[in-house]
Design a protein around this nucleic acid. Structure first.
Lengths: 349, 349
DNA sequence: CTGTTAGCGCTTTCAC
DNA sequence: GTGAAAGCGCTAACAG
């Protein structure tokens, strides 16, 4: 029923081994033979059996990409960039191509481990973990153990937008979330703000913690008290920004600026402020983080910290494919760039 | 070096066959034996070899999802929804789980075919094609042939947000783009607009054509001339909306409304209008399509057509897994809902 | 440059 | 309920 390598070999009057060599192109084959084989492949409409080939060669052309939420452009951009680099030579033929297995963890530690196991089962050629990590000690250890196993099995592991995992030698492309957070809050302070609220991401996450720490560093550096009532935690979504803003306003109507954990949250905050009849930035300044594509079109345009998501993803992809050397020490820190736009201004009065 | 089924069998003092049966759980195994096997699996930290198992069983647990652009939430939302439905029972264990292979075609017909071949090679359990299709006859035929082959090989094929492919019996969940486009333009006409510009998507695409046809249907139904100078084509991105708007304004400063191919394009249009000193909707009304999450936060909030992307993706996922019956005739049309918001109003004067 | 020969690690009849 | 044995389709030494 289904055409196999042997069928092609028979038709081309060569041995299966030769067909395999032609298809993989890693071996010298006479031009005429190769042509004959290729013709047979075409005529028979033959498609290689991936699992069989993976089994025999003990490698696969699958690359895993772990993301928190594929519907979030933050992850989509990185995933797309990784994928654009893992493909084979752009010769159109379906050879040498690698497939991206995108795994949506939803931020759940259990799913993260489950997916890593599944990828290990597939004998993935590489795995790229994107976004912040959960800091729970048990989970950190579990991830570390998994990554070690994967590496032992020959899977290349790269972290993108995530801090290094202790106990592994996985390459890490990390974002300087702390520095970005600090510059953002410093910008607000320079503008004259003192009552600055902070809508943080979910607890126990590296990204959340680093950005928040940067914010606090800035406050401390300027002798501004860090009022715990001005910090609220929530998921990285619009709703969280909306609700948190209402809550913050309830707690302290005198706040003059809101820094959000990311741009999506910031948009929610803007919506809440408008619904409360407050103007941005006249009454309250708002800032985000990431500089996602829609942020520049917000009205007013959102002040934020631009993260080179596509560049980082592409680099992670290249390293995962062994096409770029690992950075010194196995870790590369990428800076965010402060983008000052219309959503922040000096406080009134 | 690497632990195999045989190792587990030896340790549990059973045959490899029994271990396989325990792991797959499709066969009766004595409770005590099963327990012994599971313990051995744990102790040895054994992970099934996916390729080997796929080869022997002639099936894999990979599900392909073709998208135009994973960084675009339009596709990210559908892909995420598909993925949420293809997972196994949510029992935490890594069994019965299916992995989503997300393939970024970038809208290129060649890459679409390449990826379908790659998925065929992987013996994917199912393939979901999302978004509009390229209408080039040669490509349509190529896709049709590929899908037939996939189906023959036992891969379930589902189209999500894409019209049926002739010559195949792939299930199609399609969006009523035409109806949506029509209602949108009718809304504008009802408001009093007559000079309505249209920024269409790329040519030769079903989505582009259907939305545009809906727009023209509405114009025709109201006896409004369809001035070809008021239609511009471009990719589905912000830049296209921006540039097209400038071009349209250059051609005819008297236009009072702009309908964009989708929300992203609409945002670009809004930006261009603002840069030209025009107010929305006072000077020019703007409408989008899709109702992506950020559209409600645009200022003014974007009038658009809401597509139930997540619901459609989830349904496609369920059908792909055989967990939901195919709709009558193999095709289900999903309506879009007109969302009237602040970006559209009656023309001045 | 090409053919021969063993497996890769698992599933699955078929017996017991 | 469990074991034995025969492949699944391909790759990778080895020869030649």
């Amino acid at each position: 029923m289904t055409v196999t390598l042997a069928d092609v070999a028979a038709r081309a009057q060569v041995s299966p081994a030769t067909v395999s060599r032609v298809l993989n192109g890693n071996y010298p084959v006479a031009a005429k033979t190769r042509e004959r084989v290729l013709r047979a492949v075409d005529e028979l409409d033959y498609v290689l059996n991936g699992p069989a080939s993976a089994l025999a060669a003990a490698t696969s052309d699958l690359v895993g990409i772990l993301v928190n939420d594929i519907a979030d452009p933050f992850f989509g951009i990185m995933a797309g960039a990784v994928q654009s680099e893992i493909g084979g030579q752009p010769d159109g033929r379906a050879g040498g191509e690698r497939l991206a297995v995108v795994c949506n963890t939803g931020g759940s530690p259990e799913r993260e481990i489950t997916y890593l196991t599944l990828l290990q089962r597939q004998r993935a050629a590489a795995v790229v973990l994107t976004g912040g990590a959960v800091e729970n000690p048990a989970h950190v250890e579990a991830v570390s153990a998994k990554l070690r196993r994967l590496a032992d099995a020959g899977t290349r592991v790269v972290l993108c937008g995530r801090p290094p995992v202790p106990g592994t030698d996985a390459v890490a492309i990390t974002f300087d979330n702390r520095g970005g957070g600090q510059r953002l809050t410093e910008h607000l302070i320079a503008l004259g703000h003192r009552r600055i609220a902070y809508i943080a991401g979910p607890e126990e996450r590296t990204t959340t913690r680093h950005r928040l720490e940067g914010h606090r560093d800035a406050l401390a550096a300027h002798g501004i008290e860090d009022d715990p009532r001005l910090t609220v935690h929530g998921p990285y979504d619009r709703r969280s920004g909306y609700d948190a803003t209402l809550e913050l306003l309830r707690r302290d109507r005198s706040l003059t600026a809101i820094v959000a954990a990311n741009d999506t949250v910031a948009l929610g905050a803007c919506a809440a402020l408008r619904d409360e009849g407050l103007r941005i930035p006249d009454d309250v300044s708002v800032a985000g983080f990431d500089d996602l594509p829609f942020s520049i079109d917000a009205v007013p345009a959102l002040t934020t910290v631009r993260l080179p998501l596509a560049a980082a993803g592409a680099r992670a992809g290249r390293i995962a494919m062994g096409r770029e050397e690992r950075p010194p020490g196995g870790i590369a820190t990428v800076q965010g760039e402060l983008m000052v736009r219309g959503s922040t201004a000096a406080p009134r009065g």
